[in-house]
Nucleic acid binder design. Structure first.
Lengths: 137, 137
DNA sequence: CATGGACATGGAATTCATTTTCATTTACGC
DNA sequence: GCGTAAATGAAAATGAATTCCATGTCCATG
């Protein structure tokens, strides 16, 4: 690849703020939540910009994206290399990564045997975490 | 659970029309598309009713639901028992069922070992089918 | 057959995440 | 500093999905 720098992104304080705010979140957050935080904090950033920044981060693989039950997108800064799947609590939104190597291999296999190309997969696991489960007295 | 007939659904021509229209579709359709068809056909059904019917069908396990790239819900009448996963073509929307027993078992295991309860999973596989792939001459 | 009430319908209005528009501002190579 | 392509952001648009609510209709009764 020669000049594969397809997006000549600029360094702006807003983008830095989004990335920083995202880094402060321990769990998945929606673009809206992120924007709300940024407004509350000293550095206000427009909602549009938050969306744009998140798009870029997604395109460059710097965040993982999942969908909650309503279809809303949730973002989280990616820690490990390669992509990762999570088990999300339906109540509190807490997440925990899960070992998805089995699924990765499965999806890969499907890609090879299906006649389809560029096979991608998304896996959403949801449940109710121990802290949210009401003690059935 | 004894009398789990939680929803005393009635037989209405509209609901029948939705189910029939759904049966005519070979592939996944959105509620909007379905509604458009029903309006074009002789039997007009309100959009609201289409959504309600689809909700019920989903609750009773008569349709499978997936999400396309934009998060829009797509519905398809279920053929086999138990739930089923599909590989969707990103271009034409054509779908093919895939053998997902591996994933089922994996999800089940996660449910048992995670400390979460009521673990559910959704898996979306997308790709480009042979017919849609441009011949890279 | 008549009746009543629970369930169902559907058009309009609403909600809400996300995207688009566009005038203005800003980063950064020169 | 200058110019310009990129970035910003407020407002408006989009579009799926849901809620509202007045009206309609299925169906178990009398």
């Amino acid at each position: 690849m020669t000049g594969a720098k397809s997006s000549p992104t600029r360094n702006t304080p807003q983008r830095a703020a989004v990335l920083r705010a995202l880094g402060n979140c321990q769990d998945f957050v929606s673009a809206q939540m992120l924007h709300a935080r940024l407004v509350t904090a000293d550095c206000a950033v427009g909602l549009t910009t938050v969306y744009r920044a998140l798009h870029q981060l997604q395109a460059t693989g710097q965040v993982d994206v999942v969908r909650d039950g309503t279809g809303e997108r949730l973002y989280r800064r990616r820690s490990t290399a390669g992509h990762q799947h999570y088990l999300l609590c339906r109540d509190c939104g807490r997440s925990r990564p899960v070992d998805s190597r089995v699924v990765e291999r499965w999806a890969e296999r499907i890609g090879e045997t299906s006649g389809f190309t560029d096979v991608e997969h998304t896996v959403e696991l949801t449940g109710v975490c121990g802290r949210c489960r009401p003690t059935a007295h």
